[in-house]
Amino acid sequence: MSKIEARLAELGVTLPDAPAPAANYVPFVQVGDLVFVSGQISMQDGNLITGKVGTDLTTEEGAAAAKTCAVSLLAQLKAACGGDLDRLVRVVKLTGFVNSAPDFTQQPQVINGCSDFLVEALGDAGRHSRSAVSAGALPLGVAVEIEAIFQIK
């Protein structure tokens, strides 16, 4: 078990198998020491977390949905690293999309669910640059979708 997976276990998180792509794309691409992970959607225990934040979901519920995206991002990274998460150097960048009500403006607080979890699980290696944007709709009606760039060794 990697040090990162041991830390995740302390936090009560077990990584699932990396989710399969839902369309014509690959789940990740490695270029040099960077791994670009395709957008991961909000899902818990195989069930989609759907709805518009600000109408159907609170900001806090949106943040919890974003945390599930973080877990899927790490699962994809583990697959990209051949099962060895200790190859992670750092999280470089997140781009988070929030299925938002038209007047909702707390996208950063929603994406904090992912960012805060990555820092809690990875320490300084989890600190990253980021964008948090509103979307009028997301695939399958999910509440949140997040893509990431990781640096590995």
Rank of each mutant, 00 (worst) to 15 (best):
I4K: 08
E5Q: 14
A6S: 14
R7L: 12
L8A: 07
L8M: 07
E10G: 08
E10I: 11
G12N: 11
P16K: 02
D17I: 14
A20G: 10
A22H: 11
A23F: 09
N24L: 15
N24S: 15
Y25H: 13
V26W: 11
V31P: 07
G32C: 03
D33G: 06
V35L: 03
I41T: 09
S42K: 05
S42M: 09
M43S: 13
D45E: 13
I49W: 03
T50D: 04
T50K: 07
G51F: 03
T55K: 14
T58V: 06
E61S: 10
G62F: 02
A63W: 03
A64K: 10
K67C: 07
C69L: 06
A70W: 00
V71Y: 00
L74T: 04
A75R: 03
A75H: 07
Q76E: 15
C81N: 02
C81Y: 02
G83V: 04
D86G: 08
R87K: 15
R87Y: 05
L88T: 04
R90H: 04
L94F: 08
F97R: 12
V98D: 01
N99R: 08
A101H: 13
D103F: 15
Q109C: 13
I111Y: 02
F117S: 00
F117T: 01
L118A: 05
V119N: 07
E120S: 14
A125N: 07
G126F: 02
H128P: 03
S129N: 11
S129K: 10
A132I: 06
V133I: 11
L138P: 02
L140F: 13
G141M: 04
A143F: 05
A143T: 09
A143Q: 04
I146M: 10
E147Q: 11
I149S: 06
Q151Y: 04
Q151M: 09
